[in-house]
Simulated assay, not measured.
Amino acid sequence: MAGGQCVICLSEAVREGEDGVRFTVTRVTGEEPAFVVRFGGRVYAYFNRCAHVPIELDWQPGRFFDDSRLYLICATHGALYEPESGRCVAGPCRGAYLKSIPVVERDGGVFLVE
């Protein structure tokens, strides 16, 4: 950790519209699964929990995008989320949000901002 930032992965590991990178965040309550994806040239990170029922979104590790590569999808319920905001636009939790995690991309890496 340097300057309040912890490395998640190299920038090259997060490709536009491709599989995301899973990581964990240490919280007071313990380790929580999270992920980072790239969309529109930017990286976005969220806790890996559906807003409808607190289960992980990906049915296979890192598979967060739907077939169109325009939305993040909950493999269990089919809820669709905007990658840039985490807002559910279709499914049982429409209008709810994924919980975002602050990240920054610099010097060839993606960093968790603490």
Rank of each mutant, 00 (worst) to 15 (best):
F39N: 09
E12G: 14
G41F: 05
Y81V: 03
C88Y: 03
A51C: 11
K99I: 14
P61A: 07
G91C: 00
W59Q: 02
A13S: 10
G40Q: 13
L70P: 00
Q5V: 14
G62S: 07
P54K: 12
E56L: 02
T29Y: 07
E56R: 11
V25M: 11
L10V: 00
L112Q: 09
S100E: 12
D107E: 14
E18I: 01
G3N: 10
A34R: 03
L57T: 04
T29C: 04
H77W: 04
A2K: 12
R94F: 08
G78N: 04
N48C: 01
G86N: 11
R22F: 02
H77F: 08
C50F: 01
R63C: 13
C9P: 04
A2V: 11
S11I: 02
K99L: 10
F23L: 03
Q5C: 14
A34T: 07
V21Q: 12
V37P: 06
G40F: 07
A34P: 06
L72C: 04
Y44I: 02
Q60K: 12
I55H: 05
F23S: 00
G41I: 11
D107Y: 11
A96E: 14
Q5I: 12
G91Q: 01
T24F: 11
G40T: 01
E82K: 15
R69M: 06
T29E: 13
V43L: 09
V103L: 01
G4F: 09
E12S: 15
E18G: 15
R87K: 15
R94C: 05
R69A: 06
